[in-house]
């Protein structure tokens, strides 16, 4: 079976099926969850694709290992998986801080660029760089809320904090992002007014 997706079956049911030896269930879970985990990891790690792939593989491996013990109704697979991913990213960032702080790319100068030449990819790149300037927890909250589309209560479970704390982190994160990106408004094709 190809890496397709059948939304009719819940993640939890698929994980229990894999725990009982159903390989196809693992394929469907991989197709469904790996892209989301990778996206979250890439942005949590400041755009480091190779490291994000390692984190994704490790998070999925932990999911496979816990499958036989999973009980439906106890937790959401996505919540558990994103929490594992967030912790793995935090570990990697801590190690990175210790060894190669200087290698973190500096944000580009606000060099003027032709508005017509700006495309969505440039905006995404600018967002990734701006996200890289946020404190880690603010970055995770903003990515989960605005890029993964999670609701605040689920983010609170993933990050193991209160809903109020999530609201505060995302609000502060967005204010900082707006401040950083507003300096590049013209360059990103939004005009000066």
């Amino acid at each position: 079976m190809a890496f397709d997706d059948a939304q009719a079956v819940s993640d939890e049911a698929l994980l229990v099926a894999f725990g009982n030896g159903d390989r196809e269930a693992a394929q469907r879970l991989t197709a469904r969850l790996a892209p989301r985990v990778l996206g979250f990891a890439v942005r949590s790690l400041g755009g480091d694709r190779a490291e994000a792939e390692d984190v994704t593989q490790e998070a999925m491996l932990r999911l496979w290992k816990i499958a036989p013990e999973w009980r439906q109704g106890e937790a959401k697979v996505t919540t558990w998986l994103f929490r594992v991913t967030a912790n793995l990213c935090t570990d990697r960032l801590r190690k990175r801080r210790g060894v190669d702080l200087d290698s973190v790319p500096e944000p580009e100068d606000h060099a003027p660029a032709a508005v017509d030449g700006m495309i969505a990819a440039d905006r995404v790149q600018a967002l990734d760089r701006a996200l890289g300037e946020l404190p880690e927890r603010q970055r995770q909250a903003v990515v989960l809320r605005h890029l993964e589309g999670m609701a605040n209560p689920e983010i609170a479970e993933v990050m193991e904090i209160s809903v109020e704390a999530v609201e505060s982190l995302t609000a502060r994160g967005k204010r900082t992002l707006a401040r950083i990106l507003s300096g590049r408004r013209e360059g990103l094709g939004y005009g000066s007014q």
Partner: peptide, 24 residues
């Protein structure tokens, strides 16, 4: 502007390579 940038980022989410899917 932020919502616009978030939307662009959601549309350009990283796609896992076949190699990564194979390793998983």
């Amino acid at each position: 502007m932020l919502e616009d940038v978030f939307s662009a980022a959601r549309d350009e989410a990283p796609v896992p390579s076949q190699a990564l899917l194979g390793r998983i």
